[in-house]
Amino acid sequence: MSSKDVILGRIRSALSSGVDAPEIPRDYRRGEAKVDLDLLVERLTDYKAVVHRISAEKSGISAAILEILAEGTVVVPPGLPTDWLPEALEAIVDDGLTAEQIAATDGVVTAAAVAIVETGTIVLDASPDQGRRIISLLPDLHICVLRPEQVVASVPEGVARLDPRRPLTWISGPSATSDIELNRVEGVHGPRNLHVILLAA
């Protein structure tokens, strides 16, 4: 008898006296709510992300990036619009770079899939403009460009927009730990600097 059969048999016997599956009360806030970009900025900033708000014009993106990083190399996903990048930076497109190559760059620029106002969270889903998970992990600086239509108010709306078949990375501020006296301290293994460029609505 396989262990699977053993375990399933034990479970069925444990439940044999009859256990009802309850209705799930869904009276918490679920529906679509108004997006408050100011609150998003406040929540991101509260967890030590640096937010740059720019006008709706795409041309502002490269200027904003340049303000964050004046020189050096950045790794970028293959689907990132090339006009986002300032010429002063050397962009290395990830076409299967090694971990060492990625770790040696000064930063990474990605887009995002979803952002959640209430928690100050951005979510990457490895789409072509966000790339493999590794590229947003090893560089010490992550610059994430966010469009207003990607922003939702709450966690339920965020979950509803995401596709679980894609690898997802939820990011709320730079890498941090609560392991020393239970206070949040920024800067452990993930990028220690998180900059969010938020386009105006």
Binding site: R43, Y47, G96, I116, E118, T119, G120, T121, A126, R132, R133, I134, P164, R165, R166, P167, L168, T169, W170, I171, S172, G173, P174, S175, A176, S178, R184, G190
Partner: peptide, 18 residues
């Protein structure tokens, strides 16, 4: 925290990633 810094989600294997 309103949200912890990182949450990773994956489904099986993603070719070329991870």
């Amino acid at each position: 925290e309103r949200m912890n810094p990182y949450t990773s989600m994956w489904t099986g294997v993603t070719p070329g990633d991870g």
